[in-house]
Computed example of a mutant assay.
Amino acid sequence: MSYLNGNTGYRKDILTTRSVIKKGNYAVLEPDGLVKNTIPGFTQCEITILASPLLGASFVDYLVNAAPGGGNRQGFGVSGEEIFFYVFEGTVKVWNEKEEAVVTGGGYIYCPEGTRLHFENTGDRAARCFLYKRLYQKIEGYEAHTVIGNINDVDWVPYEGMEDVLVKDFLPSATNLGFDMNFHILAFKPGACHGYIETHIQEHGAYIYSGEGMYVLDNDWIPVKKGDYLFMGAYCPQGAYGVGREDMFAYIYSKDCNRDVRL
């Protein structure tokens, strides 16, 4: 086992952490203390498992750092799973049984149920990526399809009419019921916040890639920053302020949608 941040041995202070774990409700994972995991099929990759059913999530989130030439060529995903793969930085060839492309920072691929993700770092430096999987919920008359794109080609939209809170959508879930989930980027300019405390059935997994914020999770106000990961369970009250002095407080996050509740 090795650590995500590369720190080993004794520290110069007492043992402490900013991470908070409340299984099934919410979690905040700071980078310090997270480990690298070995998963069959991935070569020359450092992988950290974030949210999972063991935490109370209905999905699994991963951080993936692929060395040049590294990746997963045999295919990731089993029957019934849908996959989303996002490239923070690097040059990566991505493909499934339907489509292929070379993507750079901001690039992504959604692989619907029935296909598997393949990827290879074709660049000359490490590629830093985010990976997600979830069981797809089928409904009669609709199906999802492969989506490949780059979020940098998508315009920011004011979130609920607020000019200092901005959002981008990755998938066409708003207009296509074949999709049962979506990924978004939400960004807060310094001092901006949600318009209200949200309480809903949808779960979120959120990776903060920029800035600093104060997040309320089940009435606990917690400072968070770039590199932190958040899990928000169903009905967990949630909202945030952007508090950084310079960069926008921004994160990429998942949300289940377009389905009724199963009993």
Rank of each mutant, 00 (worst) to 15 (best):
C193W: 12
C193S: 13
G195C: 07
G195P: 06
G195Y: 08
Y196S: 12
I197S: 07
I197N: 06
I197Y: 00
I197A: 07
I197V: 15
T199W: 01
T199M: 07
H200L: 06
I201Y: 03
Q202E: 15
Q202L: 07
E203V: 10
E203P: 14
E203W: 02
E203H: 00
H204Q: 14
G205R: 01
G205A: 12
G205F: 13
G205Y: 11
A206N: 15
A206L: 13
A206E: 15
A206D: 15
A206R: 08
Y207Q: 05
Y209H: 08
Y209R: 03
S210M: 11
G211K: 01
G211D: 02
G211Y: 00
G211V: 04
E212I: 03
G213I: 13
M214F: 04
M214W: 09
M214T: 07
M214Q: 15
Y215T: 15
Y215W: 07
Y215E: 14
Y215F: 09
V216T: 14
V216C: 09
V216M: 15
L217F: 06
D218R: 06
N219C: 07
N219F: 10
D220N: 07
D220W: 01
W221Y: 05
W221A: 13
W221H: 02
I222V: 15
I222F: 02
I222M: 12
I222L: 13
I222Q: 10
I222C: 10
P223S: 12
P223F: 10
P223E: 11
V224C: 03
V224A: 09
K225I: 05
K225G: 06
K226A: 10
K226I: 05
K226E: 12
K226G: 00
K226R: 15
K226W: 00
G227L: 11
G227S: 12
G227T: 12
G227H: 04
G227F: 03
D228G: 00
D228Y: 00
Y229N: 12
Y229G: 08
Y229C: 06
Y229D: 11
L230V: 14
L230K: 04
F231G: 02
F231Q: 06
G233C: 11
G233S: 09
G233Y: 08
A234I: 08
A234L: 03
C236K: 05
P237Q: 04
P237G: 03
P237Y: 05
Q238W: 05
Q238F: 09
